[in-house]
Amino acid sequence: MALLKKLCLLLIGLAAILLGIGLVLSNPDVMTVDFFGREAGPLPGGLWLLVALFIGCLAGMLASLPMLLRLRRRARGLNQQLIKLRVAPARERNKAE
């Protein structure tokens, strides 16, 4: 199963790389982008699109990080509580015997 998961991730990564290359090759017009009065170097339009996509994905992951950490902490607490609830009846049975 782990091999299948790695193979799927490899295929998805390869497809993403091929789509990115296709995007850059289909948008070869050179553009300069102005960031608050400072011009960035001239790059193909497709590459600017990939940079914008990457920055947007990174910003989305960073924005969801606090919620993810909060949920992991809650899940860890609930798992500990579940372990205590499972262990308590076993201890009571051992005391009764």
Score class of each variant (00 low, 15 high):
Ala90His: 06
Ala15Phe: 12
Leu9Glu: 08
Asn27Pro: 00
Cys57Trp: 08
Leu10Pro: 01
Lys95Asn: 07
Gln81Asp: 13
Pro42Tyr: 06
Ala63His: 05
Arg72Ser: 12
Leu43Asp: 00
Gly22Ile: 02
Ala2Ser: 07
Leu62Val: 07
Met61Lys: 03
Leu82Gly: 03
Leu71Ser: 08
Leu3His: 05
Ala15Gly: 07
Pro89Gly: 02
Gly60Tyr: 06
Lys6Cys: 02
Glu92Thr: 10
Ala90Ser: 09
Glu39Lys: 12
Ala2Tyr: 07
Ile12Gly: 00
Arg93Leu: 15
Leu10Asp: 05
Gly45Gln: 14
Met31Cys: 05
Asn27Asp: 05
Gln80Tyr: 10
Leu71Asn: 10
Leu14Arg: 00
Leu25Lys: 14
Lys95Cys: 05
Arg76Asp: 13
Arg38Gly: 03
Ala59Tyr: 04
Leu65Ile: 02
Gly13Leu: 04
Ala2Pro: 01
Gly45Ser: 14
Leu85Pro: 01
Arg38His: 13
Gly22Met: 09
Ala90Glu: 10
Leu68Cys: 00
Pro28Ile: 02
Pro44Ser: 03
Pro42Cys: 02
Arg86Gln: 10
Leu14Pro: 01
Ala96Cys: 02
Pro42Ser: 15
Glu39Asn: 14
Ala40Val: 06
Ala63Pro: 01
Gly22Leu: 06
Phe36His: 12
Ala15Ser: 13
Pro89Ser: 06
Cys8Glu: 09
Pro44Ala: 14
Ser64Tyr: 12
Arg74Tyr: 09
Phe54Arg: 02
Ala52Glu: 01
Leu65Lys: 00
Phe36Glu: 06
Asp29Thr: 14
Lys84His: 11
Glu39Leu: 13
Arg86Met: 12
Gly46Cys: 04
Leu18Ala: 15
Met61Asp: 05
Val24Met: 08
Ser26Tyr: 09
Ala52Phe: 15
Leu25Pro: 00
Gly20Ile: 01
Gly46Arg: 03
Asp29Asn: 11
Leu58Asn: 03
Ala90Trp: 10
Leu14Ala: 15
Ile83Lys: 09
Gly77Tyr: 05
Leu9Met: 10
Ser26Asn: 07
Ala75Val: 06
Pro89Arg: 03
Gly13Glu: 04
Val30Asn: 14
Gly41Ala: 15
Met67Asp: 06
Gly45Val: 05
Arg74Asn: 07
Gly60Lys: 08
Leu85Met: 13
Leu47Met: 15
Gln80His: 14
Ser26Met: 09
Ile21Pro: 02
Ile17Trp: 04
Pro66Ser: 02
Phe36Gly: 05
Gly13Lys: 05
Pro44Thr: 11
